[in-house]
């Protein structure tokens, strides 16, 4: 038995099931990070005047700027991989998806160096409330990156070829869904970057 509207759009809503599903999931993610942002503001207001700014100076702005660029680039390659599928160019899809994964790996490597540099200077989550929320937010964001990489790798490996050849439309939808998630992860970083590194 086929579930209706898995691939095709339902006429009155104009959506397929997965599209609505991923947006609801992203809505819940907005509230998850919303809870943590709210905690950040709460702690910042509760800390001594200017303390968050002082504590934040320990972070490495150039590395974070690099990482911001890397994630933005990965968002572009991600959307390009979807556009390539829409243009029936599977080779280009492979290329762009590979680049997206490469960007994700670079992001995590940079993050690793940032974390170890902090630990080397004996800066831990328990050091102060700023570092506590810094490690929590970036750590949770990093987990989201890893989650996205797992899904994208699955679609990039031969499993993707098979899906593309048997059900091209369904596969393009799946890449669009994965893309929506990935852009969201990028979007979260766009807010994390200034509030953690610059303010």
């Amino acid at each position: 038995m086929e579930i209706p509207y898995t691939v095709k759009e339902r006429p009155d809503t104009g959506l397929n099931n997965s599209k609505l599903g991923i947006w609801l999931f992203l809505a819940s993610e907005v509230m998850l990070f919303g809870g943590l942002f709210s905690a950040y503001v709460f702690l910042r207001l509760g800390a001594p005047e200017g303390a968050f700014h002082e504590w934040g100076k320990e972070l490495n702005v150039p590395l974070a700027t690099l990482n911001t660029m890397v994630l933005i680039t990965s968002s572009v390659t991600m959307v390009m991989s979807w556009a390539s599928l829409k243009m029936n160019d599977f080779k280009k899809y492979k290329l762009y998806m590979g680049l997206t994964l490469l960007c994700a790996v670079i992001f995590l490597i940079v993050k690793y160096f940032e974390y170890t540099a902090k630990f080397d200077h004996h800066l831990y989550p328990s050091t102060n409330t700023f570092l506590a929320i810094y490690f929590t937010l970036t750590g949770l964001h990093g987990l989201h990156i890893i989650g996205g990489m797992i899904v994208m790798t699955y679609f990039w490996l031969p499993a993707g070829n098979k899906m593309w050849h048997s059900e091209p439309e369904h596969f393009a939808n799946r890449i669009e869904i994965a893309g929506l998630y990935w852009h969201f992860v990028d979007l979260v970083w766009i807010f994390l970057f200034p509030i953690l590194y610059l303010l």
């Binding site: 509230m31 702690l43 328990s126 409330t129 506590a132 929320i133 490690f135 929590t136």
Partner: peptide
């Protein structure tokens, strides 16, 4: 459930941090 549970999940993560890595949220 979709919109109200995630903030508790966030809070649970923070409490877990307090207990496991010694933060003071």
């Amino acid at each position: 459930l979709v919109l109200a549970f995630p903030p508790l999940e966030a809070a649970a993560v923070l409490q877990l941090m307090d207990r496991v890595v010694g933060t003071s949220f």
